[in-house]
């Protein structure tokens, strides 16, 4: 018997045959939903080995290491309740945590919210850049939800849709796209002019297909103004929710796209690093989720012309849905993503 975890993080005992069956089912679920290639038998065997090793912590073989980017970078230590300045957090990641890159982020992590305080944000970015070596992103969310009433000026699509006002809801979302693009271009432009090495559009698609469209259009505009700018686009979920349903980019309908399809549009818009997401199902086992996530990620890497960094935080990429994530599961995700999905980064 082998001790393995569920998608909610809890431990249970399983036979090797049970784990193998879960790996095959998780892979098959990704194949069916994404219409993508399955993992090979060798890759499933390696996943079985990763899941069954009794070690508490595992690491990838030398030579398979990948680059790490950090969405929400400086937020994480503040959420722990540690009273520490953001520049110190960046320095701590650089000097103590082995971080390859880092991200300056505001606790109100949306471009709309940052617009009024962009000068203060940029001042901190400029000073952090003087005392650090690692590449420094500035990141926030497109977060189109903030443009709807009562938080914003436009009618709320989530209220219009249940009333059957489909066209009104679509019009509202299209208006939100214009406002969000304006805010994202403004804030990202100010940060890039302040010296940022990159801009992160994090949790893209959180409000659906209009959210994804806003990030794509903002990327286009920024690349036009700053041809060398590095934009990382991290997604909110594994497929784009069709809150609007008819929005397109480059002739492709956005609703329902999976990572291997999203990445092509992101690259077309000018994104330089794509942050793919696969959701964790807390009702399934860790092996099921890991195989499913690796299958999706491998397809995304194969389809991409730009570097792909998998989102592997709590609740995505096979990582269990639990606040204090188990080291055994997280390290297995790292190794599987590096060795089987062959990602460019996490």
């Amino acid at each position: 018997m082998v001790l393995v975890r569920n998608g909610d993080g809890s431990l249970f005992e399983a036979t090797v045959d049970q784990i193998k069956a879960d790996l095959e089912e998780g892979c098959e679920d990704a194949v069916t939903r994404g219409k993508i290639a399955p993992l090979t038998s060798d890759e499933l065997d390696r996943l079985l080995e990763i899941c069954c090793t009794p070690a508490k912590f595992i690491g990838t073989e030398t030579g398979n290491e990948l680059v790490l980017t950090y969405d929400g970078g400086t937020l994480k230590m503040l959420r722990l309740g540690i009273p520490i300045g953001r520049t110190q957090i960046i320095q701590t990641h650089e000097r103590a945590f082995g971080a390859d890159t880092m991200e300056l982020a505001h606790i109100d992590y949306s471009y709309k919210a940052i617009k009024p305080i962009v000068a203060e944000e940029r001042a901190e970015l400029e000073q952090a850049l003087l005392v650090t070596v690692l590449p420094l992103f500035y990141g926030a969310m497109p977060n189109l939800g903030l443009y709807s009433q009562p938080d914003g000026p436009i009618p709320n699509p989530a209220e219009l849709l249940p009333m059957g006002k489909i066209e009104e809801a679509r019009d509202a979302q299209e208006e939100a796209v214009k406002l969000a693009v304006s805010d994202m271009v403004y804030v990202a432009g100010r940060m890039y002019e302040g010296g940022a090495d990159g801009i992160n559009f994090d949790t893209t698609g959180a409000a659906g297909d209009s959210d994804f469209l806003a990030a794509l259009q903002a990327t286009e505009k920024l690349k036009e103004k700053y041809p060398d700018i590095c934009i990382e686009m991290g997604m909110a979920g594994e497929f784009v929710i069709g809150m609007h349903g008819e929005l397109t980019y480059d002739g492709v309908r956005l609703a329902g796209l999976y990572p291997h399809q999203q990445v092509k549009l992101a690259a077309k818009a000018g994104v330089r690093i794509f942050g793919a997401v696969v959701n964790t199902n807390s009702s399934k086992s860790f092996p099921w989720n890991l195989a499913r996530a690796v299958t999706f990620m491998k397809a995304c890497v194969d389809a991409s012309e730009i570097p792909v960094h998998a989102n592997v935080g709590m609740g995505v990429g096979g990582v269990p849905v639990v606040d204090t994530t188990p080291v055994d599961a997280v390290s297995r995700v790292s190794v599987a993503m590096a060795e089987i999905a062959r990602l460019d980064g996490l």
């Binding site: 990838t60 990948l66 000097r95 690692l134 996490l346």
Partner: peptide
């Protein structure tokens, strides 16, 4: 969690060359 990923599969940042490889991606 960030530390776990860094130890399990990260390039190592300024301990090694993670920042430099990242710069070429960026």
């Amino acid at each position: 969690m960030a530390i776990t990923h860094a130890l399990a599969a990260g390039m190592g940042g300024v301990r090694t060359t993670g920042d430099l490889v990242a710069r070429m991606q960026m």
